[in-house]
């Protein structure tokens, strides 16, 4: 059984936000106007947050202040609160541990967005739009699966969307292996944010494979998870700085 997971080494991360941009182009997340963005309606499946994002801990005063950054994809929790509250199973956890979203079925009640403590779920407040130049270069990737409308497919307004670990890339890699009549290897599948990472701070792999790099790093003494105490069992593992 595969259990896809990600490890982010915060010591290496330079907070360049390359992951956010790569994600945006890979997954066709819509662009919103500056006014809408000021209201917090921009959509960033992978966001880079200054930590602490809210004044919940003391960061000292300039010049003795301490600033950290946290790059945040979906945690693909083992006990996802979003999946539990969805009334129609528009969001679900597949057999390989990826929390997916079916835009075709979502009723837009926004219970999952409320339930998620990480804020990784985004609601389409309006019909997604792009400038004509950008609209010509939307990613044509599609996901074949339980949901007929998933992953990078352009979303209608009024539904919730989220990071899928670029699940279309997994399907593509599998299909390629099949057409070449060989075994699929876990290394063939990397999400766009992992591929693009400037500092090579991100590692992706199968946690059930003890020889995988991600799996080895996850047992590092520096490893921690975000908001571990709220009972979600997040699967994205961070390596502490310093």
């Amino acid at each position: 059984m595969t259990n896809w997971s990600m490890v982010v080494d915060l010591d290496k991360c330079v907070a360049c936000q390359g992951c956010s941009i790569a994600c945006r182009f890979e997954n066709n997340t819509p662009v919103v106007s500056p006014e809408e963005a000021a209201l917090g309606r921009s959509i960033l499946w992978n966001d880079v947050l200054p930590m602490p994002i809210n004044p919940t801990e003391d960061i000292g005063e300039y010049p003795h202040s301490r600033r950290r950054y946290l790059t945040r994809p979906c945690m693909h929790c083992e006990n996802p609160p979003c999946v539990k509250v969805c009334p129609v199973q528009a969001t679900y956890r597949d057999e390989e541990g990826i929390v997916r979203q079916n835009y075709d079925r979502c009723i837009g009640c926004r219970f999952c967005t409320v339930a998620c403590p990480y804020g990784v779920r985004y609601f389409n407040w309006e019909t997604p739009s792009w400038s004509p130049e950008m609209a010509r270069h939307l990613s044509p990737e599609r996901v074949v699966g339980q949901g007929s409308l998933e992953g990078p497919a352009v979303r209608p307004k009024g539904v919730v969307e989220k990071c899928t670990f670029c699940i279309h890339r997994l399907q593509k890699a599998r299909a390629r292996a099949e057409s070449e009549e060989r075994e699929f290897r876990a290394e063939e599948y990397t999400p766009a944010c992992v591929q693009t990472c400037t500092a090579k701070a991100r590692f992706f792999g199968d946690m059930d494979d003890v020889t995988a790099t991600a799996s080895i790093l996850a047992s590092s003494p520096r490893a921690f998870r975000v908001l571990e105490d709220v009972g979600t069992h997040p699967k994205v593992i961070y390596l502490q700085e310093g």
């Binding site: 129609v88 979502c106 837009g108 609601f123 209608p156 009024g158 539904v159």
Partner: peptide
């Protein structure tokens, strides 16, 4: 409140 009342 629903984003997609058509899917009620």
């Amino acid at each position: 409140d629903m984003g997609r009342p058509d899917r009620l």
